[in-house]
Design a protein around this nucleic acid. Sequence first.
DNA 1: ATTTCAGTATTTGTTTGACAAATAAACCTA
DNA 2: TAGGTTTATTTGTCAAACAAATACTGAAAT
Lengths: 249, 249
Amino acid sequence: MSIKFEPLITESLAKQIAENIREAIVKGSLKVDERLPTEEELAARFEVSRPTIREALKRLAAQHLIRSRRGPTGGTFVNRPSQDEVRLNLTNAMTLLVGMGEFNLADIAETRQGLETLCCRLAAERRTDAHLVALAVELDIQRDPELSDVDFCASDVRFHRVLADATDNALLKFIVLTVIDALQPVANMVVYQFRKRQRLVSQHESILAALQARDADSAIAALNEQIADLGEKYAQACTSRVRHNQSGL
Amino acid sequence: MSIKFEPLITESLAKQIAENIREAIVKGSLKVDERLPTEEELAARFEVSRPTIREALKRLAAQHLIRSRRGPTGGTFVNRPSQDEVRLNLTNAMTLLVGMGEFNLADIAETRQGLETLCCRLAAERRTDAHLVALAVELDIQRDPELSDVDFCASDVRFHRVLADATDNALLKFIVLTVIDALQPVANMVVYQFRKRQRLVSQHESILAALQARDADSAIAALNEQIADLGEKYAQACTSRVRHNQSGL
DNA sequence: ATTTCAGTATTTGTTTGACAAATAAACCTA
DNA sequence: TAGGTTTATTTGTCAAACAAATACTGAAAT
């Protein structure tokens, strides 16, 4: 006689329930803005207690898959995943990976170069006048010599975000924004020490002019120059940080 | 007299606590594999009850930031974020976005083309012989006319994953794998109806040959041809699906 | 008739206290 | 010393209750 061993589920109930509901959402059995049963009903349905149900729901809430409201018309509802919310998650996760040193700086610079080159090519084709204006606004900000380092950095980030927006490709924009945001701490660390902003600004000016003329190649050239510069600074910042750490120990 | 209004925190305690601990992790005050206080201690520290603490911890567990074990040496520990775990999260989230139609097929095709073009360029430089072998293995599989559609698809995905691996750029690989995985459902839908595999296979053969010769341009040409083909199929699949939906209603 | 306000029901948020299950270390026993 | 047994610790789960938010209901006042 052959004994049929059960799969022997050892995962926590809350996790299983969360996974269960999650699948229902992604498969579409639970539609956007649809209301889930109350926690008590869910507890009865899954034959567990309410705290267990709540732990499961919190897992889903952490992924922005559901939202909850109190009151008679309240309850738990399926969230339409907004790009921004998802991107926040991704950025957090990637920031952590970058912070742990999972990616080296050369890889980061190379990837950014590849992505932004692509952006330049598409943006040169599709940018609107509004994009040019937005870029010009940031340039004006960056030209102010009284600007603090952090503000300069922030403006730099916004400049590149506009570049991504000008591609008119939602997916590419999504990816590029995620990467830019995740890499901002690193970028900050670098530009912070990069006091000669003039070169950065003039590169941005070149990019803006090239986009205005719809000249993709010139835009890419200016961009590559900038990223090459930053690549050097990355390396310097990296070695100096290593030295700092060594001296610190 | 000016009254100083308090920030008026209305967020749930569990959420605040989760955010609190999360920041401690990303800021580095809590190091990898370090053990958090027991749930009881945390409850005392934050002056809330244990279930509330547990809900907070579940939020973090959903993001793979912590893990828990029972027993005397058990407790809650800070997780080293593995690329694969994070990627699984990202892929799930992106799959949802794609499934909700946040990105149109033209954008998807264009983005994929841009990313993989980049991969080809780098892979032509840096591929090792092992990569060539891996690609050849998949090609052999794909040549089998008896292969089922799903298996063909799976092999196709693996082929492109090897391509990403050959770039020797961890970040780029991470991004490309995420996108490929998130888009697999769409790709499946397409290739499924694309019975003439011969053309796909010969394109793969061209890519392999080009990489062997370290000829980036040829590889890119073959790849672009393939993605252009898929772009057409995307469009067809899309319209046919629309028709299907219309007839269904 | 309309507005305003208090009450009420419903649902999530939180607490308390307890027990179950897993697990490693300490402790016996042979 | 080897091997099993107890024990302490910690997370996992449950039960019952109260608190807080919120929309609906209905009565009172204008």
